[in-house]
Nucleic acid binder design. Structure first.
Length: 475
RNA sequence: CGCGGGGUAGAGAAGCAGUAACUCGAGAGGCUCAUAACCUCUAGGCGCCGGUGCAAUUCCGGCCCCCGCAACCA
């Protein structure tokens, strides 16, 4: 990534369910950042896609009576639908089952192995005979499977490949200490420094093919497939041409990665160590956001509090959803979202705020015959403050600023009262309205990365001197 | 003493030593260009107990309560 180029990526969601609001938030944030940099004149490469290998998918496909490929095709499609639903401007949609990605993952493995960072060892796994499943420690309660507490957990040995994560501790810490803003926000950076400083354990990067065939084959070992994480993370480089198109790779790397807090380790430590092991530079930045809860609880089907982003889009419109996710979901902290909160923000800020402002101003503009000069319809720059917020990923603060301007404009109309003056001092009234329309143009321009369609509608109304349809009807 | 984050008006959310922003919601006025919209005013708050300071929401100590993580998972 050069000074003029900007490479941003979301994490690749695992395709074992339809897209949820959390991922929608992440990808909308990425889209806003991408659009904003384009406005500011940088070339942008915006990547997203789907993570499609692994045991969970394999099992669910089998349970659904589908081939894994058919199963992931179905979900990849459902994630692709987000593009139009949320008006996303990504440049690339990578699937980890894409041939080019599979080849890249294998090449990546070869390089890491050739550098001596992968080894094979026997690995004890905890197995619940009742479930017929391997269990992680966090799934066990008091050393027993919560579903089959009467049965002993069996320890079985399996031979897997391991990645020498532990040898990268010093390199990671050095990097962290020399890169002030590598992980954002700072609190998360502290967490990962702490984690790495406390010591790293090598992790398993393959699975027995006989147990789990749905993965990228390990080069030169027909018995094993890559563990899903190892292959999926490589997408960040395979998406920009590594290893076949190194010119393209050099143009865009390193990347700014967005991820949820559950992904901190994988993105900020494991993946960085993998890059180092392959002799590649670290990422530029890892931005960690929070989770979305609903009524104080994690969204889950059994609680019935799941909010489907596509339903919101259907009921309120694309820009309304983008608006809400960008301003009313905190960029870094967990946020509680309910349909009520959404509707409240919609009515207060979109219908009564922006939408109403456009109506009242356009009415006067047209009735009084006020036109915004063409040259005023060109210049736009984000204020320094707005730029700073965007660079810190605080998109909510930028919207706060923009909505403050909406409020000021409403106030301006109230104080100057052009609708009264038009009867006694029409010149004065028209001048005031002209100023207001100029400001409205600026507001619309600032809104472009956030609400692209709305921004265009407002600008179109101003330049064509025509009343737009109500932007956000009250609900 | 496993690690970490946090408790600011009904809700969300800034500030982090010197009259406690802002948004929504509530109450009372005003206006008429507008999507029963808009403007003004009002009520209401720093979890608890100590300490340091001229001054503490802000620093220090203790307590209480939430919430993550602890190697599957946005």
């Amino acid at each position: 990534m050069t000074d003029t180029n900007f490479y941003i990526t979301t994490t690749l969601p695992y395709v074992n369910a339809d897209p949820h609001l959390g991922f929608a938030t992440e990808i909308v944030l990425a889209d806003i950042l991408a659009r904003h940099w384009r406005v500011r004149g940088r070339a942008v490469f915006f990547n997203t896609g789907t993570d499609e290998h692994g045991l969970k998918i394999f099992r669910q496909a089998v349970a659904a009576g589908l081939s894994p490929q058919a199963y992931v095709n179905h979900y990849a499609e459902s994630f692709r639908r987000l593009r139009s639903a949320l008006n996303l401007s990504y440049d690339n949609f990578i699937r980890t089952t894409d041939e080019a990605h599979v080849v890249a993952a294998q090449e990546f493995w070869r390089r890491v192995a050739a550098a001596g960072h992968i080894y094979k060892k026997l690995y004890p796994i905890k197995y619940c005979v009742g479930c017929e499943l391997e269990k992680t420690d966090s799934e066990l309660e008091a050393g027993r499977c919560p579903l089959h507490p009467a049965q002993e957990i069996e320890v079985r040995e399996e031979e897997n490949y391991f990645f020498k994560f532990s040898s990268f501790q010093k390199q990671l810490l050095d990097w962290y200490n020399h890169t002030v803003d590598f992980v954002i926000p700072e609190r998360r950076f502290g967490e990962i420094k702490n984690f790495v400083a406390n010591g790293l354990q090598d992790f398993s990067v393959s699975r027995l093919r006989s147990k789990m065939p749905w993965g990228v084959p390990v080069p030169d070992d027909p018995e094993q497939v890559m563990y899903v994480w190892f292959d999926a993370l490589v997408n960040y480089i395979s998406a920009i041409g590594w290893p076949t198109d190194m010119a393209k790779f050099g143009e865009w790397w390193p990347v700014v990665q967005l991820a949820g807090k559950d992904n901190l380790r994988q993105q900020a430590a494991m993946w960085q160590a993998m890059l180092a092991a392959a002799g590649l530079p670290f990422s530029r930045q890892v931005v960690i956001h929070g989770f979305i809860t609903s009524s104080g609880q994690k969204m889950s089907k059994s609680l019935g509090n799941v909010i489907d982003p596509l339903v919101l889009v259907n009921d309120f419109g694309t820009d309304a959803v983008r608006y809400f996710l960008a301003r009313h979901v905190h960029p870094f902290e967990d946020s509680d979202v309910t349909r009520e909160k959404f509707a409240e923000a919609y009515n207060a800020n979109l219908a009564n705020g922006l939408g109403n402002l456009v109506s009242r101003l356009m009415r006067m503009t047209i009735d009084y015959g006020v036109r915004l000069p063409a040259e005023s319809q060109k210049q736009f720059v984000f204020s320094e403050e707005e730029q700073k917020f965007l660079e810190r990923y605080e998109v909510n603060r930028v919207l706060d600023k923009i909505w403050a301007r909406v409020g000021e404009l409403d106030l301006k109309i109230q104080t100057t009262q052009p609708f009264v003056l038009i009867k006694t001092d029409p010149e004065r009234a028209k001048k005031d309205v002209a100023w207001c329309v100029g400001e409205l143009w600026q507001i619309a321009s600032a809104l472009e990365p956030f609400l692209p369609a709305t921004a265009a509608t407002v600008q179109q109304a101003i330049s064509s001197h025509a009343m737009p349809p109500p932007l956000f009807p009250r609900k």
